[in-house]
């Protein structure tokens, strides 16, 4: 009985892992091909005619390295900035009976409901009023605030699940509220902070539409915008695109792998207490 269960489990896992990896294998195979097409004639990832040419070309003939650095800078700053805002706000909403607090939470959630494409033009108008069009600062503000709602909800739920007695004990010991927050609450919030950071990072790492309208110099392009330049309407450089896609996905997959333990406990929006 035990053995049967294990076998069934392994079959399920194998099936879904193959499902998960299938497109990844496909894109790897395309990235090793040299004939600039998005079609494969066999299931082999590596064939006789495969090579690393696309990857070499990416680093020698395109601005890929610049885009990579840009994206790293933007995504890291968005994460730092966003997580700072979110942690403070979530703590405030969780611990203080602020006027308008619940309304604010609902407003945050409702920002997810308007189709983002309609916000593009007003975003641009707003940023250019402040002279932030074609600036990373503009991207920084927009990305961190589009990811804020999820992050605040997530962190608030986590903080809610931490008993208040913990800080009270710290305060009795002479800490201020702020110190208690830094010394008591944040250290045990690792998983939730990890989840929200990851979320902020991924927003900035893979967003295309807003970046495309705001960034106008190719030295400023982030990866998604850069990658798009391999795609002309009917003449896409598929080999380069696939190679770049593989390289773009690697840091994200690494981050997910590193944080996967934290993700599990951090994602549950606090506890099972409901």
């Amino acid at each position: 009985m035990k053995k049967l269960k294990l076998i069934v489990s392994l079959i399920i896992l194998t099936f879904f892992s193959l499902f998960a990896l299938f497109p990844i294998g496909y894109i790897f195979a395309v990235s090793f091909k040299n004939n600039n097409s998005f079609q494969l004639s066999s299931f082999q990832i590596w064939t006789d005619s495969s090579s690393f040419d696309n990857y070499i070309k990416l680093f020698t003939e395109t601005q890929f390295p610049t885009w990579l650095i840009n994206s790293l800078v933007v995504s890291t700053s968005v994460t730092l900035f966003g997580i700072t805002l979110a942690a403070f706000a979530a703590y405030a909403l969780s611990r203080f009976p602020l006027r308008g607090g619940p309304t604010f939470l609902l407003v945050l959630l409702s920002t997810q409901m308007l189709p983002a494409t309609m916000l593009l033009l007003p975003f641009y108008l707003l940023l250019s009023k402040f002279g932030l069009a074609n600036h990373y600062l503009g991207l920084l503000i927009i990305y961190s605030s589009t990811a804020l709602p999820f992050c605040i909800w997530q962190l608030k739920a986590w903080f809610d699940s931490i008993p208040k007695s913990l800080e009270e004990a710290a305060q009795v010991d002479g800490s201020t509220r702020l110190q208690a927050f830094f010394k008591v609450i944040l250290p045990i919030s690792g998983p939730a902070l990890a989840v929200t950071s990851l979320f902020q990072f991924m927003t900035a790492w893979s967003e295309y539409a807003i970046a495309a309208i705001i960034l106008q110099d190719s030295e400023l392009f982030t990866l998604p915008v850069g990658l798009k330049s391999f795609q002309a309407s009917l003449a896409t450089e598929w080999g380069l695109y696939a190679a770049a896609a593989v390289l773009v996905s690697i840091p994200a997959v690494l981050l997910f792998t590193l944080l996967s333990k934290a993700l599990i406990s951090g994602l549950t929006m606090g506890s099972v207490k409901g």
């Binding site: 896992l13 879904f16 892992s17 998960a20 990896l21 497109p23 990844i24 991924m202 790492w205 893979s206 998604p224 896609a245 773009v248 996905s249 994200a252 997959v253 981050l255 997910f256 792998t257 996967s260 993700l263």
Partner: peptide, 8 residues
């Protein structure tokens, strides 16, 4: 199994 989530 988490990979699909990580790819943009």
């Amino acid at each position: 199994l988490i990979i699909p989530w990580a790819v943009p």
